[in-house]
Each structure stands twice: as C-alpha cells, then as structure tokens.
Computed example of a mutant assay.
Amino acid sequence: MYAISELAKLTGITAFTLRYYEKIGVLPKPRRHNGEGAGIRTYSEADLQMIRFIHGLKLSGMKLEDIAGFTGDGCLLTNPDMPEYDVS
C-alpha cells in the first residue's frame, strides 16, 4: 500500500493533482486508513497502474472530462482478472 506522497514520487504527479483527479471523478475514491472521511488515503498496486494509465492518456492530449468518462465506464485496467502491465 502507498500513501499519496509515495504515489506522487512514483508517478511524477503531485499529491494536489491526485486529489483534484479524485475530486472531479478521474480517479476513484481511494481506501482510507482510520476511517472514511478523515483517514489517510492508501493506494494499492492496481491504483498505481491506473494512475500511470491515466497519466499516459493525459500526455496523449486527452481531456480530463474524456478520461473521466472513459475510466468511469469500467476501464479494462480495473478488471482484477486482467494481467498487470507497466504503462509508465
């Protein structure tokens, strides 16, 4: 499990941006340590893969609104039976 600061270092995306992506629906709400509202965000390896994928879409020029629609409709990377790929 990763804290948001660790995830920011691994992806090159600031913690502020990760929180913003969560707020606008580009990223799903993360698990929280010590409670749902005030707990510390924790991210899994699958979350890291998803964030790298989203970052790749953003770098390709896709708008955040389009990314949110794409990932919100059940992106293939959210399927636990799919093998993990390095999309960084």
Results as ranks from 00 to 15, higher is better:
residue 76 L to W: 15
residue 48 L to S: 05
residue 29 K to N: 10
residue 6 E to M: 03
residue 44 S to L: 01
residue 26 V to M: 08
residue 75 C to M: 13
residue 41 R to Y: 05
residue 83 P to N: 12
residue 52 R to G: 09
residue 38 A to S: 14
residue 65 E to Q: 15
residue 65 E to F: 10
residue 2 Y to H: 00
residue 84 E to Y: 14
residue 26 V to I: 15
residue 11 T to F: 01
residue 88 S to C: 14
residue 25 G to L: 01
residue 23 K to Q: 14
residue 16 F to C: 09
residue 66 D to H: 15
residue 66 D to C: 10
residue 64 L to T: 10
residue 48 L to R: 05
residue 20 Y to R: 04
residue 15 A to L: 03
residue 18 L to A: 07
residue 31 R to S: 09
residue 78 T to W: 13
residue 73 D to K: 15
residue 37 G to T: 12
residue 38 A to M: 10
residue 42 T to G: 03
residue 61 G to L: 06
residue 11 T to K: 00
residue 48 L to G: 04
residue 40 I to D: 07
residue 57 L to G: 06
residue 64 L to R: 05
residue 3 A to Q: 10
residue 57 L to Y: 08
residue 39 G to A: 02
residue 20 Y to M: 10
residue 83 P to Q: 11
residue 30 P to F: 02
residue 27 L to P: 00
residue 25 G to N: 04
residue 47 D to F: 00
residue 70 F to P: 05
residue 23 K to M: 08
residue 27 L to S: 01
residue 80 P to R: 11
residue 74 G to N: 04
residue 52 R to L: 08
residue 87 V to M: 12
residue 32 R to W: 04
residue 75 C to E: 14
residue 17 T to D: 07
residue 70 F to L: 15
residue 14 T to P: 04
residue 46 A to Q: 10
residue 14 T to N: 07
residue 73 D to N: 15
residue 49 Q to F: 06
residue 85 Y to G: 13
residue 58 K to R: 11
residue 83 P to E: 15
residue 52 R to T: 02
residue 49 Q to W: 08
residue 37 G to A: 11
residue 51 I to D: 03
residue 37 G to F: 14
residue 40 I to C: 08
residue 53 F to D: 02
residue 22 E to P: 03
residue 75 C to T: 11
residue 21 Y to W: 13
residue 41 R to Q: 06
residue 73 D to I: 12
residue 36 E to Q: 11
residue 29 K to E: 11
residue 29 K to R: 12
residue 71 T to Y: 06
residue 49 Q to L: 12
residue 73 D to Y: 13
residue 30 P to R: 01
residue 37 G to K: 14
residue 61 G to P: 11
residue 24 I to W: 09
residue 88 S to A: 13
residue 9 K to H: 07
residue 29 K to W: 06
residue 3 A to C: 09
residue 71 T to I: 12
residue 66 D to R: 13
residue 37 G to N: 14
residue 54 I to P: 02
residue 62 M to F: 14
residue 72 G to I: 03
residue 86 D to N: 14
residue 45 E to L: 08
residue 83 P to W: 12
residue 73 D to P: 06
residue 77 L to D: 10
residue 59 L to E: 12
residue 35 G to W: 08
residue 69 G to F: 07
residue 35 G to E: 05
residue 26 V to N: 03
residue 26 V to E: 03
residue 12 G to N: 00
residue 67 I to E: 07
residue 7 L to W: 00
residue 15 A to Q: 08
residue 23 K to H: 13
residue 7 L to K: 00
residue 45 E to V: 07
residue 60 S to Q: 06
residue 72 G to K: 03
residue 14 T to A: 02
residue 56 G to F: 04
residue 39 G to M: 11
residue 39 G to C: 06
residue 34 N to F: 09
residue 12 G to R: 00
residue 49 Q to H: 11
residue 81 D to I: 14
residue 64 L to V: 08
residue 11 T to H: 01
residue 77 L to R: 13
